[in-house]
Design a protein around this nucleic acid. Structure first.
Lengths: 213, 213
DNA sequence: GCCATTATCTATCGGACTGATATAACAACG
DNA sequence: CGTTGTTATATCAGTCCGATAGATAATGGC
């Protein structure tokens, strides 16, 4: 794997020491979480592995609420290892946008539920956008400013698109999803049978595999 | 899980019968693959599970090259189960954009490698955009047209942003990444120590947890 | 004053999923 | 006539997620 969870943590530690809990919170609530994630179940083992490898050191410290926490800091070897990994080509984007898959089937969803799905997506994306803007500061490195700008551009485009085109899949007149489904099986049984999932229609034009990435 | 691989396959089968290999190819090369993925290691078990559950039927057929393939088709129960799942709220977007993480550390990357990373990203995204446009057809359902439009808007924005702002992280004058790294550890040891990964700076302003999503 | 909720903090584990690999048959290329 | 590429199914080690557990203490409601 090009950049696994240990390396992700190592990079974050480069910006300053932190505990496992703090790393998770930074990913969950901060801008980086918009495009990188990790669970406790991988962060804690990663930190202990990094320590055993000599890429990080661990120090006990008093937590904010009378609790002891383990604060990790990157070592010289850790910085070198991270820089080494950065010298490779990043892996392909990996995304899983369930709401888009849902909207693909807007005809099965019904106008009501389609609207609900879009409303929900708009609400969370507007919240994310607000968060992104609230943490803006003039003092952070150019790389972070660039990345934040990218994320804001993507969020803005998403919101604009959803608001501008939602009517295309909400206005369609349709019966309840349930009755339509039952009926559909009978009707389509003969009609759709001939059609296959379009694997073929992809590469005749572009030449095989041109699309991949 | 809201929409696991079996349900993903079931939805695809709704559009027409297919073999495991064809489903994989459709995801790999087609527009849906832009936001949903699945490996052979999950597709084949999924199809056999769906069949045992009565959500799909399996039929042997002559493959294009004298090979026998197993063609799966959705049943009435399968359609109902899929429609049922669609009636829930889709899970949050899950994305892993390694190239953004790399660019966050453009100061460690060096201008050359930063440029290489951006060039690579631009090339694959332009290829994807071209693919998206090549498969456009007037006859597909509104949901699919909507989703394709969304994907095109996002890709266009990404390409435009990268081209418009890449100079911000490519022009910075810097020594080789290696020498900077070694040096950095010595220099920053005392300076950065005080600073923590910004978990705190997130919610003082917005109120806690406003950002999540 | 008391109890439910929430936040901080570390840790583990079942199960899902990926990525790589094995196998096999045939086409096309040079 | 070997090598590479495509079609096709299948398995498996290892990674990672999501849920859960357990402990402490501040907050807030009533």
């Amino acid at each position: 794997m090009a950049l696994d969870i240990p390396m992700l943590c190592l990079g974050l530690l480069t910006r300053g020491e932190a505990s496992g809990y703090e790393l998770k919170k930074a990913l969950q609530d901060g801008p980086i979480g918009q495009f990188m994630e990790a669970s406790y179940g991988s962060i804690y083992p990663a930190l202990s592995r990094l320590t055993h490898q000599g890429f990080a050191t661990c120090r006990e410290s008093a937590g904010e609420r009378g609790h002891t926490k383990k604060v990790y800091a990157v070592t010289a070897a850790g910085r070198a290892a991270f820089a080494e990994r950065l010298r490779t080509v990043p892996a392909e984007d990996k995304l899983r946008l369930e709401f888009l898959y849902f909207l693909m089937f807007s005809d099965l969803l019904g106008a009501d539920h389609t609207a609900l799905v879009i409303d929900h997506k708009l609400a969370t994306q507007k919240a994310k956008l607000a968060m992104m803007r609230s943490v803006a500061s003039g003092i952070d490195p150019p790389g972070e400013r660039f990345v934040r700008g990218y994320a804001e551009a993507m969020l803005s485009t998403s919101i604009e698109y959803l608001e501008a085109h939602r009517s295309l899949i909400e206005t369609a007149p349709n019966q309840s999803a349930a009755s339509q489904t039952v009926q559909a099986d009978g009707v389509q049984a003969g009609t759709v049978q001939a059609r296959t999932v379009q694997t073929d229609s992809v590469h005749p034009d572009t030449g095989k595999k041109a699309a991949l990435a």
